[in-house]
Design a binder for these strands. Sequence first.
DNA 1: GTCTATACACTGATAGAC
DNA 2: GTCTATCAGTGTATAGAC
Lengths: 199, 199
Amino acid sequence: MIQKNAPTLELAPKAEQILDGAMKEFLQRGYAATSMDRVAATAGVSKATVYNHFGDKEGLFEALVKQLAERKFAQVQRSQPLQGDPKVVLRQFAMTLMNNVGKDSDYKAFVRLIIGESGRFPHLAQTFIRNLFKPALTIVTQYLAEQPSLRCTDAEAAARVFLGTLIHFVISQNLMYGDEVVPIEPERVIDCVLESLFQ
Amino acid sequence: MIQKNAPTLELAPKAEQILDGAMKEFLQRGYAATSMDRVAATAGVSKATVYNHFGDKEGLFEALVKQLAERKFAQVQRSQPLQGDPKVVLRQFAMTLMNNVGKDSDYKAFVRLIIGESGRFPHLAQTFIRNLFKPALTIVTQYLAEQPSLRCTDAEAAARVFLGTLIHFVISQNLMYGDEVVPIEPERVIDCVLESLFQ
DNA sequence: GTCTATACACTGATAGAC
DNA sequence: GTCTATCAGTGTATAGAC
């Protein structure tokens, strides 16, 4: 009766299944508007199974956020180290970041959720910062520290200027739909920040 | 029986009263977790009165967001025009922005709410951009366009670099509690962005 | 471990008296 | 315009059978 084939080769198949359903619901509706009923239905399991695995709604939410943060962290770590001419390398980096974040609906929903709930779940916001912003900051800081053409001698501060410019651009133009209110070509901002940071 | 004294001298006393209660609830709990029952109780009116004034929950939320956006807009417009030595003027501007936004709990909650709900209420996110980000962008762009020492000839792009750096700093360090994960003195970032933008 | 069934509180919204 | 009372629906969480 019990099918032993194709257990998807994962440690906890039902847990993965539940997290998949939880992701769809939480990203689409937000934390408070997501019901455990719907998570169970979307995941294709009973509600009691959800509670057995994750304790309560907060436990499920925390497990989901940590999984998403770790998945994206793996992507960042896997990216090739920066090397070469700054203006070429960093322009490529900027375009990748803008396309990777600004046009990925799931990722945009994830960022909205984390920021929106950061007042009630400070620990999850910090997990996001630790797993995603901090590694990016470290990579860019190390790269900038090796560039003699960098105008600002404080490489970490320069990395914050560069990343802050890019991330705020995505937040204001894409997450908040500012591209219809204060439109501008991304290239203009990238050109300007690179022109400013390097001689 | 009916007290005629102290009608608070406002056009719609009950409406203001309801919006005050709605502000407390929505800013603290978010949109979905806020109940109309609690808004009515906090405002000191009956629930039916809330529905008579604002139609439904979305109507109340939109009225609240527009009021908050307009109040903050008035503060921005009232600020003195920028003039004088760029590094002095913009350092002062940056410190004011960081203290005004980063340490005002109500304003932080407002920004979290707007970003968190921007996927479900794009129009309200755009109202926020139009009333708060766009005016700031305009003021800084005009000021930068007059500075001969500006390295980047594209004043609007430079304004986005400057404001993006500052706003992302507040979001990551204050809204998302990144100051405990990736701490840094604000002055280092301000120094760096000014050093980069100006000769 | 997983399911069905259910407890119990609370939700957004409305009807009708005043 | 404001209130009390209430509706139908849904929320989180759990008990008990398998």
